[in-house]
């Protein structure tokens, strides 16, 4: 009768780790696809102000950025707020050319949807921002977005 009795091993079998690389690869691909690499290196500090009535900026390919704030290397460039376009410091008169170039880089059908996002440091004075806005008006870039962080409202 004992011929049906199996030899039961007492040891717990080791968990197979052969599918571990697959799981990790799956995570890896997820992060690779969702990652957006920064295109420009910031040379000005932009600590954005906070607001509650914010809207999401859709279609990132149709957004051109203008950064305004005090230079990060304040020992060399001082603490006065400067404008950054692409990777370089710029002056107010460069903005019209920048807008034209940005417009030219886009598909003709998409040009009218081009939004200019102003990433401005909160401590910056409005003078330079007003100048930039005037230049944008001259360059017919009317859609602008004041970039702000979303303020979390405490529930009472």
């Amino acid at each position: 009768m004992s011929r049906f009795k199996k030899q039961v091993s007492k040891e717990v079998p080791a968990i197979s780790t052969s599918s571990l690389p697959d799981i990790i690869f799956m995570l890896l691909f997820f992060f690779m696809v969702t990652t957006v690499m920064r295109e420009t290196t910031l040379i000005v500090k932009t600590k954005l102000p906070e607001a509650t009535e914010v809207q999401k900026l859709e279609k990132k390919s149709l957004v051109s950025y203008i950064y305004i704030g005090p230079p990060i290397q304040s020992k060399i460039y001082g603490t006065e707020s400067r404008i950054q376009l692409n990777d370089y410091f710029a002056v107010v008169s460069d903005i019209q050319e920048f807008v034209v170039l940005e417009r030219e880089a886009r598909d003709e059908a998409d040009r009218k949807f081009l939004t200019t996002s102003l990433k401005v440091n909160g401590e910056t004075k409005m003078g330079v921002v007003t100048d930039v806005k005037q230049e944008l008006r001259k360059a017919s870039a009317f859609k602008i977005n004041y970039s702000t962080r979303r303020r979390v409202v405490k529930k009472e």
Partner: peptide, 27 residues
């Protein structure tokens, strides 16, 4: 794979751009 994963984890920025939309008037 872990090494690569950690690299992408560190470099990923998940923030969405938000802001106040405004329309400027013509000159």
């Amino acid at each position: 794979a872990f090494l690569l994963l950690i690299f992408f984890l560190v470099t990923t920025t998940m923030d969405v751009d938000t802001g106040i939309m405004r329309q400027l008037p013509p000159p």
